[in-house]
Design a binder for these strands. Structure first.
Lengths: 150, 150
DNA sequence: CTATGTGCAAAGTCTTTGCTCCATC
DNA sequence: GATGGAGCAAAGACTTTGCACATAG
């Protein structure tokens, strides 16, 4: 997603602008954490970000990384991958189905989508490896949460 | 996914048969845990399963639920929802994209799929609520793990 | 200068593991 | 009876939080 040094500094630039616009202070820690997130394009864990940042800021603490990432997420600067809550969830429904996830109450509902099931994955991923299954996750707010939110 | 009592006992029946076929002992605990998974169709957490099972088996311990669920998963009787590993992962790529996940090394790769992006969700979910975004997760084994696995 | 952010340490969740006793086959 | 499974307790991984000090604006 980052093609060149030019794009990298462009991203850092717009990051700083976004912080200013949102009233977030620009600290060394935040800059290094955002850089680390840009550098590790393959969805790093908090710990991977921490290790990366530590190379430049030796005194940074892991909880700062947690807090900063939470802030970035809150302000829409980054997203969490496949996040529901911190607990594993299970599925006895082994038939081909997909999930609706309410981002407010975390409830998961199954749905079916035969038109999607019959689609072939795009050619661009042909070299990736051996595909097992493909699933759709639709994120949003369920009607009961939608009501409560008014 | 369970429509009636008939289907419920059918599922329990095939569960017991699957256990026998795979050499898994049929214990009270396993039966109750599987029942709980069938009953809570909305993807319960381990703790929810534990609470449910405890109503019938007061001495069951949480670690038995963990171990049993892991066994069921290992034997293909259930699946884990959205599982990568136990750590959160993050994404600076805010453009519409999808994920390839290697089930062996847990690495995540981005890919793009405009044909999917332009699809409308199926009509069947119209009443669910307000849709935020839709994402595809493709699960499989990346080529480098595929090599190592030979 | 002031309020936001950081570091430290401690605690909170969720999950896994070693060992002994028990129950299924 | 033999062996795989359950229960207990303890530890491990990941994440959050309270408080005092530091620093950006």
């Amino acid at each position: 997603m980052i093609d060149s040094k030019t794009e990298f500094s462009f991203m850092m630039d717009s990051f700083e602008k976004a912080c200013k616009a949102k009233g977030l202070r620009i600290t060394h820690q935040r800059i290094e954490i955002f850089k680390a997130l840009l550098k590790h394009t393959n969805h790093p864990t908090t710990d991977e970000v921490f290790s990366q940042v530590r190379k430049h800021l030796r005194t940074i603490s892991l909880d700062t990384v947690y807090r900063t990432i939470a802030t970035f997420e809150e302000y829409g600067l980054i997203k969490r991958v496949h996040h529901i809550d911190n607990a594993s969830r299970f599925d006895v429904n082994l038939s081909e189905h997909h999930h609706l996830v309410c981002s407010r109450c975390n409830k998961i509902e199954d749905f079916y989508w035969p038109d999607f099931d019959s689609m072939k994955p795009p050619k661009s991923i042909a070299g990736w490896g051996k595909i097992g299954f493909k699933r759709v996750v639709i994120d949003g707010m369920c009607s009961s949460c939608n009501e409560k939110n008014k």
